[in-house]
Amino acid sequence: MLKLMKYEFRKQMFSKMVIAIILGVLVGYFAVMNIMDKEQNAAVALGLMFFVMMVAAFYVSMESLVVYGKDLKTKQSYMLFLVPQSSYKILGAKMIAAVLQIFFTMAIYIVTLGLCGMIYLMKYSNIKQMLEFLKEIFEVSFDMQIDFWLVFKVLSSMFILWVFIVILGIFAETLMNTVLTRGKLTSFLSVVMYIFIFWAVARVESGIYDGMIAANISNAVANAIDIIYYLVVDVALYIASAWLIDKKLSV
């Protein structure tokens, strides 16, 4: 399984590096502009960073699906499916790799934003002020924790949703290459199905959430159940995809 994952990473390593490099350059530019007091240019760099992040987020999700598509449709598929491992392991490795990709990308973003924050701090406060600032953070740590909790909540729900988008995509692609075979309407059908499943899953989720709020269940618990709900859906999609590969896939 680890070996399978190793090769899944290898297939997509390049783009992560490109994203990290672009963001790194932009951070550097941002830092230099700040030092030179060219605020406008620094703001442009920051704007560009956000733009790159958005595009890259989209690209990273797409890339997992594009790679999977190649693993199903091109001769490259022989590489993966001649391997004497069960389809559950093959797809499991693929999905975990895809999730970790998302995780890495988010980590790159957090590091980028952290760096920008530090640059601002260094610019607008001297060392003494910065130390005081840090002291302040410790002093009001209780308040800060709440903020951290909020940040964590936003990030985790973004993460969960992102993972769901990719796993649902993998399921749709599997379906397209097994049961639906390769007819003319296949791609169209799978897009329709993707949207439908996405909508249905979100519908059920908001139903559950509203129900929990109405039943006076605390916000934290409701959020946790929300996350569990998505995890269950992800696992169900994984099992369904692996089963389809095992029984139906012809490459």
Binding site: R10, K75, Q76, Y78, M79, L82, V83, P84
Partner: peptide, 20 residues
């Protein structure tokens, strides 16, 4: 299945290795 794949070596006509 998994067991037979351990024993059987298939070579296709076309190249199939990962391009990287």
């Amino acid at each position: 299945g998994v067991q037979s794949k351990k024993d059987i070596a298939y070579m296709s006509t076309e190249p199939f290795f990962y391009s990287f």
